[in-house]
Design a protein around this nucleic acid. Structure first.
Lengths: 211, 211
DNA sequence: GATGATAACTAGTCGCTGACAAGATCCCGG
DNA sequence: CCGGGATCTTGTCAGCGACTAGTTATCATC
């Protein structure tokens, strides 16, 4: 526990925290393991013993991100169960966890087949689907709701009906696209406006999108 | 023109082509200027004289991407003017120009204030907005269409009414989110299915999204 | 409360990278 | 034909990720 001793005590956690800060400050591409080691006050090779790779560290960071996202989605669903608010929750998550968000969908950056990561990602997706089924604006109560679903894909047993999955992915796409575009600065005036306010306006325009 | 001479002849173009290939093969984070120089058969410092920086090269690549996107959107609008098809066009662009797409929205990777890049990006956005106004499924003919638009932001003259811009950004968000998520491999079964087919299904679910 | 296995960390090295400096070669207008 | 600018080369630097080997602390077990 003591920082003056030979052993750091909680280096793994310290490195992850430092990584999140460094990425938030100056992007993931300029992240350096040696700099993290410096920030934590350990030698340049110490991080290797906690995460095998640089990719290993980013895997842990992405996993943490998916776990946080699951929590945020579940909490949001309980608090104000509106589809628009679920999108806003997604954006809030991206803003509050920029570093994780920047890594989570960059599969070339981490070990994409890591079991912990896969589990966390699946859990986040499930949390999203759960938000689809029991909302008052009932996106699944439309005319297509009782139409027979296409035959489920053979082989893998489906936990969620295709329909719910598809609507969930549509919502996910929109929220994710907005968050990504905003953070990239590609949106006009993305510097001036409040992102959450903008999201309410833009995402609300989904009505005109459905012809 | 001759490759055996001291001067390469068209090194700039060759480097951009090699960069696109390298990024498509193994991602932008493992791109190396020296490797590009090797591929083009020149010394390791030659690329510097055409693009000041590594960021300079990526700026050129992103600019090219936005230009290609403008063309694709304009062509699509003429061929089959449907909103869904505009989204599909966006996905097709991302699939066919993976390298450019991977860079275009990573503003930390290039010189985001470059005038050529800004012009190309604005042109792409305009091409998208143009697709919003004259489609048969008329996303702007809804009940909100003739409601008085909010007062235009003072200062900058608006080329496009706020409403069109907002609906455009909503469509952009959805298409961009789908393309991004698909390419990231985060979608379930993204390996098995045909992306364009999947996009038609998922993006079509926008109807259930609008409560 | 000594011991020994093991976890946590350090120190040194390698090839690679991007950036920079200085010089060589080529091309083209006068 | 010649001089200046564009194009390209060679050499160098510090920083990086990965690897190896050695050092120090921890802790269960006797």
């Amino acid at each position: 526990m003591s920082r003056s001793s030979y052993h750091h005590g909680d280096l793994r956690r310290a490195l992850l925290k430092a990584a999140a800060e460094a990425i938030t400050e100056s992007g993931v591409n300029s992240l350096s393991m040696r700099d993290l080691a410096r920030r934590a006050g350990v030698s340049h090779a110490a991080p290797t013993h906690h995460f095998v790779d640089k990719a290993g560290l980013l895997t842990a960071l992405a996993t943490d991100g998916f776990e946080q996202l699951s929590k945020a989605l579940a909490t949001s669903r309980l608090a104000s169960n509106s589809l628009l608010e679920l999108g806003v929750t997604y954006l809030r998550f991206a803003l509050a966890n920029r570093a994780q968000f920047e890594v989570m969908f960059r599969t070339d950056l981490y070990h994409a087949e890591d079991p912990d990561l896969l589990a966390a990602r699946r859990q986040a997706a499930d949390a999203l689907y759960a938000g689809m089924t029991d909302l008052p604006d009932a996106p699944l109560a439309g005319p297509d709701a009782q139409s027979p679903a296409r035959p489920a894909k053979e082989g893998t047993a489906e936990l969620v009906p295709d329909e719910v999955r598809e609507v969930g992915l549509a919502a996910w796409s929109m929220a994710h696209g907005f968050a990504t575009l905003w953070l990239s600065g590609a949106f006009p005036d993305s510097a001036h406006e409040d992102p959450v306010e903008a999201a309410r306006i833009i995402l609300g325009r989904v009505r005109q999108l459905a012809a």
